[in-house]
């Protein structure tokens, strides 16, 4: 039986990829941000995941305005990063697990989430930057991956509630998989930020900290926000909170906070990190495999 270990939710600002490549972790601008990650890596190492399910939003590398899926699920044997046109270095390809992917897809469609399935899928910085934060300097990723892309480019976006429900359905699907697998969930993006217009640079620290607290305690409360509420309170790109909600939704057991970090600014963004442990009754997360 597959076990859901927990979730890591983290910002995915592209500049982080550049900072990693230039080894700026100790630079005064970057240090308060990068200092949040060793504790996350230690926890991830301690729970020994072999599959990562990642909720992220593509920014045009794979999906453009010609065809824009609301929810797209990877079913590929391999996922490659590619030149996004803004100078961040590409990372090695990720191994997929098509059997696991198709199991999740079947369960999701049975659960009335009519997702787009992708046997070929490029993954952009929103997927690769969090992976690099968890496994820096890797040449061979130690996990197989299942990317799930949520549209936050072209309005209308799926509502926060819908994304939370998607996460719950993914959680049920993972637990229904009859293989021994240790699954870590990743939710990327956020927290408050706005990249465009006269309101660019908008940050809402109070709202962000409330979200980080409620995500642990009462995610249903966050799922009641509308997309427009999130834009108003957290900025246009603050809607990426839906990826955090989806990741939280996938945690089916008792959830507790392991670690968090919050720092303003990285580029235009309030950067957040949350590490959540999931304890199912049947199989405690830290039990030996």
């Amino acid at each position: 039986m597959a076990t859901i270990l927990g979730a890591v939710t983290t910002s995915h600002v592209p500049a982080i990829g550049g900072a990693i490549a230039r080894k700026l972790q100790q630079d005064p601008y970057w240090k308060p941000f990068f200092d949040g990650y060793p504790a996350a890596r230690e926890w991830v190492a301690s729970v020994r995941p072999d599959i990562v399910v990642a909720f992220y939003n593509d920014h045009g590398l794979q999906f453009f305005l010609d065809k824009m899926p609301t929810f797209a699920v990877g079913a590929a044997p391999e996922y490659r990063h590619a030149d996004e046109g803004w100078g961040i270095p590409t990372v090695p390809a990720f191994r997929g697990d098509p059997e696991f992917s198709w199991h999740v897809i079947e369960q999701l469609v049975a659960d009335e989430f009519d997702v787009t399935t992708c046997q070929e899928m490029l993954v952009d910085h929103a997927f690769t930057v969090p992976m690099s934060l968890l496994w820096p300097d890797t040449v061979d990723w130690p996990v197989r991956v299942l990317p799930i892309a949520i549209n936050t480019v072209q309005y209308p976006f799926p509502s926060p509630r819908r994304c939370y429900r998607l996460g719950q359905a993914v959680g049920r699907a993972i637990e229904a998989w009859d293989r021994d697998a240790r699954v870590l969930v990743l939710g990327t993006g956020g927290l408050s930020h706005q990249l465009d217009g006269e309101r660019a640079g908008y940050i809402n620290k109070r709202f962000d900290l409330m979200c980080m607290e409620e995500l642990v305690r009462d995610p249903e409360a966050l799922a009641r926000f509308s997309t427009v509420d999130l834009v108003r309170e957290a900025g246009v790109q603050g809607v990426e909170l839906v990826m955090w909600l989806a990741a939280r939704g996938a945690l089916t057991g008792a959830v507790s906070k392991v670690h968090s970090n919050y720092h303003i600014p990285i580029s235009n963004t309030a950067a957040g990190l949350l590490v959540l442990e999931n304890r199912t009754k049947a199989a405690p997360a830290r039990a030996a495999a």
């Binding site: 408050s192 990249l195 217009g197 660019a200 640079g201 940050i203 303003i264 600014p265 235009n268």
Partner: peptide, 29 residues
């Protein structure tokens, strides 16, 4: 140009003004 330079250019601020605003905690709600 960086994403921060692009974002700042939409506000009428200089690059330094915008960067300073972000370092001070970002634009107020």
């Amino acid at each position: 140009r960086s994403f921060q330079q692009m974002a700042g250019s939409m506000t009428g601020m200089t690059e330094q003004e915008y960067r300073d605003m972000m370092l001070a905690g970002g634009r107020s709600v």
